[in-house]
Simulated scan of single mutants.
Amino acid sequence: MNTRGFMLIEVALVVVLMAIILGPVMHLLANQREKDKVLAHLESRQRILESVEGFVLATGRLPCPSTLPSGTESRNGDACLHREGWLPLATLATWGIHGQWKMAVATLEQAGEPAQNALVSAQPFAQLNPQQLTEIVMAPYTANYAVGMGPLPAIHLCQVVQGHALPQNLNAGCGAHTLLNATTVWLAYLEGDLINQNRYQQFFINPDQAASNPVWLSFERMNWLWMKRGALDTPHIQEN
């Protein structure tokens, strides 16, 4: 009886010692997995952004979403068939990125013609000069308008403020959250990022979730790419 009791004590001591030894090891492994996840995400973000910027430099326009994962962009002439969908990996020739990515593009649909498809058109300045396009994209920030009703046609990029509920998917603006960029024209996010699913007009950056935050392109950056490409010197600009 005493022997069995002594053996139970030994087993208990072994279990305690293993917990003491393995606890920090498991914690370190979990931290390393999280670090690897964050690094893979950041690398994918950089590769995606570089491929999209290269696409703008080569074509003078933003890519359209795809209807299929890893597919080609879904277009009809100079217009996107959808404002939101899968990242067109085949069109961008971007492979081996971590996770599956979706994207949204500011087609300026609510701005109406002739600006409606200026950002995704192969000839963005055929009917609209750079000053006019800038005035449309840089319109005053109007957080209280529903999608399609306010003067700002670009995507709102917001930072999550803890303790506040997210606005409805169909509302423009950030609600009680912080505006990061009101002139975002293109954005890609992980397919598993539930906070940003199917928002089209407003997307959120969460400082506490570095491993799942979106990547984006602002109009200012796109305009710089256009200038670098020489698109602003195109001879077919029309003045009003």
Rank of each mutant, 00 (worst) to 15 (best):
L92D: 13
N181W: 05
T107G: 00
P167C: 12
L87S: 01
M138D: 02
N129P: 13
E135S: 11
V120D: 02
V120Y: 00
M138Y: 00
W186P: 06
G148R: 08
A79H: 12
G148P: 05
L133T: 01
T107E: 01
N144D: 14
K102T: 01
G112H: 05
Y189A: 05
P124G: 11
C158Q: 02
L157R: 01
H82V: 14
P114D: 01
Q131V: 10
G99V: 03
T142C: 07
Q123P: 06
A90F: 11
A126R: 12
P153E: 02
A90D: 15
I155F: 01
M149V: 13
T94R: 03
N171W: 04
R83I: 07
A106M: 08
G85D: 06
L87G: 03
F125R: 00
G96P: 13
W86M: 14
S121C: 05
A165N: 14
L89D: 07
A176K: 08
L89N: 14
P167D: 10
K102H: 04
H177C: 06
L92E: 10
T142L: 11
A176W: 10
P130R: 02
T178V: 06
Q159R: 15
L187V: 14
A93G: 14
L179C: 11
N117Y: 08
A106N: 04
H82R: 15
A188N: 12
L119F: 01
L108C: 08
E109S: 15
G148M: 07
M138P: 00
Q162R: 01
A111T: 10
T142A: 15
V185K: 04
L108Y: 07
H82C: 13
L180P: 08
E113S: 07
A182I: 04
Q110E: 15
A126I: 02
N169W: 07
Q132Y: 00
I155V: 04
H177W: 13
C80K: 10
Q110R: 11
M103Q: 02
A176Y: 08
W86V: 11
D78P: 03
L108H: 07
L187A: 14
E113C: 05
E135D: 11
A139K: 06
A122T: 03
L108M: 02
L179V: 11
L152C: 05
L133K: 01
N181E: 13
L157V: 05
N171E: 09
M103N: 06
W86F: 15
W95S: 14
I136N: 00
L170I: 09
L128Q: 05
V137W: 00
N129M: 08
A122H: 01
G112C: 07
T142E: 14
P151R: 03
L179Y: 12
P88R: 09
T107F: 01
N181D: 15
L92P: 06
A126C: 14
Y145A: 14
L180W: 12
E135C: 01
L133D: 00
H156W: 06
P124Q: 05
I97Q: 03
L180E: 13
R83W: 09
P153Q: 05
N181P: 02
I155M: 09
Y189D: 02
T178L: 15
Q110H: 09
V161H: 06
L166V: 03
E113A: 05
P140M: 07
A93Y: 10
V120N: 02
P140S: 12
M138W: 00
